[in-house]
Write a protein that binds this DNA or RNA. Structure first.
Lengths: 283, 283
DNA sequence: AGAAATATTTCCAGAATGTGGAAAATTGTC
DNA sequence: GACAATTTTCCACATTCTGGAAATATTTCT
């Protein structure tokens, strides 16, 4: 089990380094340009769009008609104006769900890696489980144990336990009710009592500790990340071999992880401006 | 209807009534299909996408490469997975017409969440469909069923039914004519008669009720939000597990949702000034 | 370790498909 | 009422897209 898993690398023929390698689809490229034009102004006539995009009206009309059928643009039949459609919003909204936390977290975990030289994981909580969505690997011999997309058990990882610690009592109860207490090592919590004794101390301390509970010889610390409603949406963790993770260093790393998590919470909920203003409107 | 205004009418050759008149651009149509696929999953490989969209891998690759150059999709060079991109979000978010309501509604739904401790959804109606544009999730074990960007069926949700209830007879007729009555649960309305019996009582009551019609075990209440012309532009709903939603509580929540909707109507139609000045510029 | 299977990217001949000028059908203006 | 402006459709032409196959890599067998 403690085999250092290799990250899933890219398969297939590698992309050439040429700047415009790969395909070029003219009609699609033009359609995207039209969407950009439409996004600037709210409601344009066909001829205005054609003029702005520098394309013949018939071509613009054909592209818009196709987009309209897919609901990516609206065409007001009263006044003939074209606008960006709800369908586009629907697709665009998926971006927040999928990419917001990883995009925000990447620079933070990168700095964490450089400071600690241990593996850093960023995991998202989807209501049932934690999923690793970004990571930075330490350069040591012992490498990452979770790969991108790996699921972290709530009862046997620092990330999972810190989520339990900050959840509402009702939600925590629901999680505990269906907990299966799979035993990964001899130190894995196997009863609710044992687990909750551990979890109870996390909130005051500010971070959770995994003391060889998932993998023998590995210790980790983690802290939760919140959204603007103060709901935990994920966690950041630092893990390394027990020989390097003395109790003393665990405390220092724990405080560092907690401050990194706080920073990500601030970024995620829009306190600081690192993302385009559109983010703020729809969080 | 006082429709004697000198509204600018549509100019140019009128569109034919044929359903698929106008242009068809295959490559663009396919690209939109790919975006839809990507929006559903969080990260897919090329071959998965090709399989799902039922297109040859080389074609998919060419389209994705074009979209990537325009930032509409991301391609992770580490693991080769494709996701929806920031550019897509930026264009979708530029949909100014749907921007005003979420901005206004956010504080209202936040208070609604704190008062009720149940999931609150704010959806916008664009004449064809209802789309969730903001939400506040309850802290309980049972969570939201609709996420941002989700489409709400008119016949099987409280939000949809309250829109039908306040629409003009002509518009309601048009909606009913193309209603497909998809059955989500055993309680979903499956005939126009059944649906309209329900809808008929909504206006007098002030709110609509979804009694496990979309999801078994879930009940919800909703009320419509109007613009300054008294046209319904969206709805706010509160939903929770049936065990917590007694008939008695449904009545109380319904009245509360109705008053929240009224407040949003007032704010939206400009009775009170709560928005920052820069907002005006975008209207 | 080598072979087979799987995956991504590029290439290219062939033709399907998109292109855009022109015509048709309207509304607005003088 | 004629003319200008605008949107939509039409259609001949060849540009542009298509998709099978090859190239190049990783993962999994044997």
């Amino acid at each position: 089990m403690p085999e250092s898993e290799i990250l899933p690398r890219r398969r297939g023929r590698p992309a050439s380094t040429a700047p415009d390698a790969g395909g070029e689809v003219q009609s699609l490229d033009r359609a995207v340009a039209l969407l950009r034009v439409l996004a600037e102004a709210d409601g344009m006539s066909l001829s205005d769009i054609a003029k702005t995009a520098d394309l013949p009206a018939s071509t613009v009309h054909r592209l818009l008609a196709t987009l309209q059928k897919r609901q990516l643009v609206n065409h007001d039949h009263e006044n003939g104006l074209w606008t960006v459609g709800l369908g586009l919003f629907r697709i665009g909204a998926a971006y927040l769900r999928i990419r917001k936390l990883p995009d925000i977290g990447r620079p933070v975990i990168r700095r964490l890696l450089h400071e600690t030289d241990e593996t850093v994981n960023l995991a998202m909580f989807d209501g049932n489980e934690l999923v690793v969505v970004a990571q930075a690997e330490g350069h040591s011999a012992v490498r990452a144990f979770f790969r991108l997309g790996a699921r972290l058990p709530l009862h046997a990882t620092a990330a999972g336990k810190c989520i339990l610690a900050v959840a509402t009592p009702a939600f925590r109860g629901a999680c505990l009710a269906q907990m299966r207490y799979e035993a990964f090592t001899v130190r894995t919590h196997r009863t609710e009592r044992s687990l909750m004794d551990d979890v109870g101390g996390i909130e005051a301390r500010g971070f959770a500790i995994d003391d060889e509970e998932h993998t023998l010889g590995m210790r980790a610390v983690a802290a939760p990340i919140f959204n603007e409603w103060r709901e935990p949406i994920g966690a950041v963790s630092v893990s390394g071999p027990a020989v390097r993770m003395s109790d003393d260093r665990i405390q220092r790393l724990g405080r560092r992880v907690a401050s990194a998590a706080e920073q990500m919470t601030r970024l995620y909920s829009g306190a600081d401006e690192v993302l385009p203003p559109e983010f703020i409107a729809y969080r």
